[in-house]
């Protein structure tokens, strides 16, 4: 076997120092994606640093009304938290739309943000994949692309990002606290993922010496929250297209889409059109789209989902 060390860190600083000493080390929390990747020989870290006992498993309401979610809070715990359910129902609903009960009990907040694509070519080590083996090419281009991204893709990669949770965080303007031995920085989620790039194996701005410690939610924005996820079966499947949508008390709306891009897809500049001209919103939100004949349906599907949500909201308000 490939021997590897497993060390349970006692604090974030401890975890960071352990990883600093071993350049191929990885953090592990729930392990719901990383262990699969190790079994498939896609990842072979010599050291796993367990961060689940570093005290980052709390959801704290701050004095200014913001919420700080520890990185190792499980998806189940986060979805069930009363502050989340009251103030950020779109997040709770997105979490519950993802995976299965068993997985949500293990999967963590930070890990969810960093899960890898579900592109089947990524998981088959006999196939070319720039995300798995930089420079090897992209088998998905011209291959089975039905589930993959339609926008923000590159010649190097057309993978989509599978998280539901991140889509809700994007619509909520969450921030990500990154901690290193030299300090802490806060990155808005809109700047966290790279999207289209010539180096698709580098997916986020996180540096090797950094650990996600918290996800910060701004004060509750109110309004009506929806998370609509359309998939090929009723549960336990990744989204073909999903939408995290919030209708705000001032009559405006905002939305982030999942399943269409290598990151949660949100086009703020077009959001004023959501309540007035959905065709135009979709046109702008997907301008520059590069779909295949297999996945081009995602764009009209996104429009149908948004139309459904807008109608449902109108009916609820009437």
């Amino acid at each position: 076997m490939r021997p590897f060390n497993f060390i349970t860190a006692e604090s974030p600083q401890h975890a960071l120092s352990l990883v600093a000493e071993n350049k191929n080390a990885k953090f592990i929390a729930g392990g719901t994606n990383l262990l699969d990747l190790m079994k498939l020989e896609i990842e072979a870290p010599p050291l796993l640093v367990d961060i689940s006992k570093t005290g980052l498993d709390k959801i704290e309401k701050r004095e200014d009304g913001r919420i700080a979610i520890g990185t190792s809070v499980t998806n189940s715990a986060l979805a069930a938290d009363m502050n989340i359910r009251r103030g950020y129902p779109v997040l709770s609903r997105a979490l519950l739309a993802g995976a299965s009960g068993q997985l949500r009990n293990k999967a963590t907040t930070g890990g969810n943000l960093l899960q890898r694509t579900r592109c089947p070519y990524f998981y088959d080590t006999a196939q070319a994949c720039n995300k798995r083996l930089p420079g090897s090419g992209c088998s998905a281009k011209g291959g089975f692309s039905r589930l993959l991204a339609v926008i923000d893709v590159s010649d190097a990669c057309i993978a989509s990002f599978p998280s539901d949770m991140a889509v809700a965080l994007r619509v909520l303007d969450a921030e990500i606290e990154l901690c290193s031995l030299t300090g802490t920085r806060i990155i808005p989620i809109r700047d966290f993922y790279h999207g289209a790039t010539t180096q698709p194996h580098i997916e986020t701005v996180i540096r090797r010496d950094e650990l996600i410690t918290r996800i910060i939610l701004p004060r509750p924005i109110g309004g009506s929250h929806f998370y609509e996820k359309v998939r090929d079966r009723a549960s336990y499947a990744f989204a073909l297209v999903s939408a995290a949508m919030v209708f705000l008390p001032d009559g405006s709306a905002r939305v982030a889409l999942g399943g269409v891009a290598p990151k949660p897809w949100r086009v703020e500049s077009a959001e004023q059109l959501l309540t007035t001209d959905i065709d135009e919103y979709v046109r702008i939100a997907f301008s520059g789209a590069s779909s295949t004949h297999e996945n081009q349906f995602k764009i009209p599907l996104a429009k149908q989902i948004l139309t459904t949500l807008i109608n449902e909201h109108k009916e609820a308000m009437a």
């Binding site: 579900r118 089947p120 070519y121 998981y123 088959d124 196939q127 088998s139 011209g142 291959g143 089975f144 090929d232 079966r233 009723a234 549960s235 336990y236 499947a237």
Partner: peptide, 21 residues
């Protein structure tokens, strides 16, 4: 995959069968 000659979705995440729901 008609270029490469194999079934691409060769695990239970890719080959979907009905779930309870």
């Amino acid at each position: 995959d008609e270029r490469l000659g194999f079934f691409v979705n060769h695990d239970l995440a890719g080959y979907e069968i009905p779930v309870h729901a």
